[in-house]
Nucleic acid binder design. Structure first.
Lengths: 114, 114
DNA sequence: CCGAATCCTGTTTGATACTG
DNA sequence: CAGTATCAAACAGGATTCGG
């Protein structure tokens, strides 16, 4: 307890836990896309046209490992796969709202004056 | 307006604006450290011991360019520098709260079961 | 004490092409 | 449709040294 800010240390750790999960260029967009309902690979891709199939596949896998989304394979012909948010993934809703709100605020306040 | 999710596109952009500002390993910790009040370089460094002076300097500069913090030079001997949040930086408060809350939730729900 | 300058490395991301 | 494979580029981050 000699640190000047013991509380600070604990708060920092929690924030970094969260950042690790949503960090990167694509995870937030993917999760937001899925807040509109379950989607297939190609549908997510249409929401995020810039992403390469490789990155989409890779990030979906990471999100699944963190239990934020589920991957369901329908063994039809041709093969169909659906991605959907888990309850944990849905629990990001408030955080993503704040993220968007602040992003809009920042854009209005700053971007353009830079 | 032919996209399946026109609203989605707009929301994605706002969220990514926000992510760009707070992304990276160190920006959120730095801003959180400064929510406890203005601090000097070495004080921030004590809150975030793992960061190298180079990264701290570099990230402080980036945050200053985005108008989230101010850098004040006191021409004393030896030289003293103080960093503080701007109103825009303080406006991150709610977002950072959500980040920490979700981080704690995630840790309780998931980490350990992985 | 508060950095700047340089060099270096590994991870992340992307482009392109290909497969069941 | 839903990815994989391969290769290259870009970037983040670290180590070290130096200066006011």
């Amino acid at each position: 307890m000699k640190s000047t800010e013991p509380a600070c240390q604990y708060e920092l750790k929690a924030a970094r836990d969260a950042m690790e999960v949503i960090q990167g260029k694509w995870r937030v967009p993917i999760v937001i896309s899925l807040t509109y309902g379950k989607k297939r690979f190609g549908e997510i891709h249409r929401d995020i046209p810039d992403i390469s199939p490789k990155m989409l596949s890779q990030e979906l896998k990471a999100l699944e490992e963190n239990k934020l989304i589920t991957r369901t394979l329908y063994d039809s012909m041709p093969v169909t796969v659906e991605y959907a948010l888990t309850p944990l993934g849905m629990s990001l809703r408030e955080l993503l709202n704040e993220l968007r709100n602040w992003g809009k605020y920042f854009r209005n306040e700053i971007i353009g004056q830079l």
